[in-house]
Nucleic acid binder design. Structure first.
Lengths: 247, 247
DNA sequence: CGCATACTTGAAATAGTTCAAAAGACGTGG
DNA sequence: CCACGTCTTTTGAACTATTTCAAGTATGCG
């Protein structure tokens, strides 16, 4: 049943961006996979592996990261329920980034063979998958601008705005509060900041009643101010309901 | 004729990563497009546009960038001859990043309708296009780790290593020298550094006989050292000749 | 209750920025 | 082919955001 719910949620995501016929929707619903649970702080896809399945996040929070010299890891993306965290592995199965469970996480592993079969049978699904990867890359590009060109406060504000939108779309945000079960250390890593400095930024945000964070969730107190600080505009997420009609 | 050469070069690129049959190769060769020349410092794809063609770089150098608040632009990628700079626009035609000619650049504009038709007729080509976008995203992820987590010297070294590999693969590198017609200001932008600081790093690299740059090209004097400083490993570029056999 | 993990705070050090100005390259027209 | 204006690179000095190191306080868990 968890499988069914997860696929339905993923289908919702696809349909936000791509128009699919009833038959195509059913084809996605018919995908098979196996549910796996990953303990907090475990890597579940490792660099150098060649994998034969993609991971649909059912529950929890996953981070995609690259290893760097000094043992540090550079996180490049967060994946929340409904995200196919490594759909790209279907066409590039040699892992060059890894996946890590930031908190206890449930994953639906879907064999590449299943995904390829459904994409070959239904060109519209192939386009939908391709489109999904492209949007993912868009998010990455935005990310790279953030960490490359903005100061610490703007980076923090931007990611919090992004996560709020993404959790809202999947129905997990509760008013101004949304779950984000991540430590300051892990978040700092994703932002290219020291945990110490992230902590100071968060303190400032709390003092100025903009946003507060605890281990489990975020509460946005002043959304307008947060978005302004982060120069946030949600367009790049392509989560508004306007599926591309073509193919 | 320029069209023919450009498509052949792009086909080479696709075949580095994807196995295509003779018929599929011919389908790619049969794409139609129009050659356009862009003067240096002109934007040729603008944020907010909805476009109906993708741009294959025939000659020159293009930068992909996002606009940010203070009028600055954040460059996220460079595109050299043989790159389909915005293949992703086929599935996401609303432009959220722009393309800018760093130097006089020739572009082959290929209508989305052509690309979609060929992808629908040949599933293997659809997969090859999808794969190409995924590798592009890989490069972006690497990029984001660079600017987010490495110091100035490592960022500079890394991008120079990357560009050397990419120019070598298309046969434009001449020993340790390769073309890279970009100003220090534009390069600094891509690295998330001030032009002033980039200049100091380049001076240090010149003094230490590691690499030198002039307006038109780069000469790598000590490749081992440059790669070490940049923690460079070319795997993420997927430019080694080992096409995925499947689909 | 005690240990482990996460968070908080302070003070000193530094990588990178900012501002400002000079020196060098490049193309264009006279 | 020289003079001129423009664009790019180079250099200096003061400044600041962020890091680093180090120690202390919460918080949760067995």
């Amino acid at each position: 049943m968890a499988t069914k719910l997860a696929l339905e949620r993923y289908l919702d995501r696809l349909r936000l961006r791509s128009k699919l016929s009833t038959a195509e929707c059913d084809a996605v619903r018919g995908l098979n996979g196996s549910i796996v649970t990953v303990a907090a702080n475990q890597d579940f896809v490792r660099i150098g592996d060649t994998i034969d399945h993609a991971c649909l996040i059912v529950d929890g929070l996953a981070a995609r990261f690259a290893q760097i010299r000094n043992g540090n890891r550079g996180t490049v993306a967060f994946h929340i329920p409904g995200d196919m965290a490594d759909l790209h592995s279907v066409v590039a199965p040699n892992v060059t980034w890894a996946l890590h469970a930031a908190t206890a996480t449930t994953v639906l592993q879907i064999p590449h063979t299943e995904l390829i079969a459904v994409a070959e049978r239904h060109p519209a699904i192939a386009f939908a998958f391709w489109r999904d990867c492209v949007v993912d890359a868009n998010v990455l590009a935005q990310w790279s601008v953030n960490v490359g060109r903005k100061d610490a406060a703007a980076r923090v504000a931007h990611i919090l705005c992004e996560m709020q939108v993404r959790y809202s779309v999947i129905g997990l945000a509760d008013g101004s509060r949304f779950p984000f079960p991540i430590t300051q250390t892990d978040l700092a890593d994703a932002l290219g900041l020291t945990p110490v400095h992230l902590n100071r930024v968060l303190k400032r945000f709390k003092d100025e009643r903009i946003v507060t964070k605890d281990l489990g969730s975020i509460v946005v107190l002043n959304h307008a101010k947060l978005a302004a600080i982060g120069e946030f505009d949600s367009a790049y997420l392509e989560l508004a309901r306007n599926p591309a009609p073509k193919s």
